[in-house]
Amino acid sequence: MGGKAVGSRAGSKGAKAVPSAATCADLRAVLEARASFYETLASLYFKPLTQEQIDAMAAADFSAYADVNDVFAEGLNDMARYLRHRNSGTRQELAVDFTGAFAGTSAYEGKTAVPYKSVFTSDKGLMYQEGYQEVFAAFKHEAVKRRAGLDWPDDHLSFMCQFMAILSRRASRALEQGDVSGAVHDLEASREFLERHMASWFTDFASLASRLLSTRFYRGVLKVTEGFFKLDGETVADLLDEVRG
């Protein structure tokens, strides 16, 4: 859903648990599923949804994700129930909700819920602070950069989700080529990035955003994101065990 906001030097249905004694094909299927879902999350936080995206999400079958965890399932239910009653005004309603919360046009007690790490990790809630510098350094270390023409800071949640998708597909290509050390590097980079630069501030962001959002859909998006981050931490640990084995 949506165009890529970051590029690299170098859409799967449903979540797949890492199978015991997994084959290379099994592992690559899990990695592709991870990448695809991270791209979906990236599109949800990047800009207001188009009518085509709304219709596609309403028709999508997310049943394979139903047992991920409770918060993820609750979020999916919120999104599905909202979209089930969509009408000619849904796109505009979602756009207003997105802009108010994630684009910072609304505030709660003087604070906005723009999805930047710096805003939620700096003392004064400002952009381009230490959080931004840390994410920029991580992108640079893995030779990843934002697409030309996008002026938002690198520590935007959408860019970070796409970074995770890139790492996942790199790990898949490394396994395809028999490069175990390369796959381990990409998975270790994913685990560290998720812990240090995404999960570390997402709870604070989601708490504030939920006070500003009015639609059940975007509140569900927050829950799905939280649940997926939890799942992905477990998935990457399992992948590393399998690849090293």
Score class of each variant (00 low, 15 high):
F136Y: 13
M127W: 00
V18A: 06
L157W: 03
F205H: 14
R9G: 05
V30I: 05
C24I: 09
E242P: 09
A206C: 08
F136D: 14
H185R: 15
A189L: 10
K117A: 08
H185I: 07
R81N: 11
S207M: 11
F98G: 04
A165T: 05
A29V: 04
E176A: 15
R173Y: 08
Q51N: 10
R34Y: 01
R147G: 11
Y45L: 02
D26W: 03
F229K: 03
F136L: 14
R34T: 06
V71K: 13
L212D: 01
F229G: 06
S8K: 09
G104M: 12
R9F: 08
T50W: 03
R34A: 08
T105F: 14
R191K: 09
C161V: 04
L231T: 10
V30P: 02
E226C: 00
M198T: 05
E32Q: 15
A58V: 02
T112P: 04
A103S: 14
T90E: 00
G220T: 10
S172A: 15
Q129K: 12
D238E: 15
F228W: 15
D154S: 07
T99S: 13
D238K: 11
K140R: 12
F120Y: 07
A10S: 14
R196H: 13
G125H: 06
A113L: 02
M198V: 14
A64R: 13
A103G: 07
M198A: 07
G227N: 00
A21V: 04
A143V: 11
F163I: 11
A101D: 00
D55R: 00
A189V: 13
Y65P: 00
T235C: 14
D154M: 03
G75Q: 07
D70Q: 13
Y65H: 08
Y38L: 09
V114F: 03
D241W: 03
K124F: 06
S181M: 12
Q53F: 01
M57A: 02
L194Y: 01
S207D: 13
T215D: 04
M160P: 00
G75N: 09
M164D: 01
F102V: 02
G233N: 09
I54D: 01
Q133D: 04
S63T: 09
D155P: 07
L240P: 06
A206F: 02
E32D: 15
G149I: 07
G233P: 06
W201C: 06
T23E: 10
G220F: 06
L187F: 10
R169H: 12
Q162C: 05
A5T: 13
A138D: 07
C24T: 10
R146G: 09
A66L: 07
R169C: 12
A138R: 00
A209F: 08
N77T: 08
D232S: 14
V184H: 04
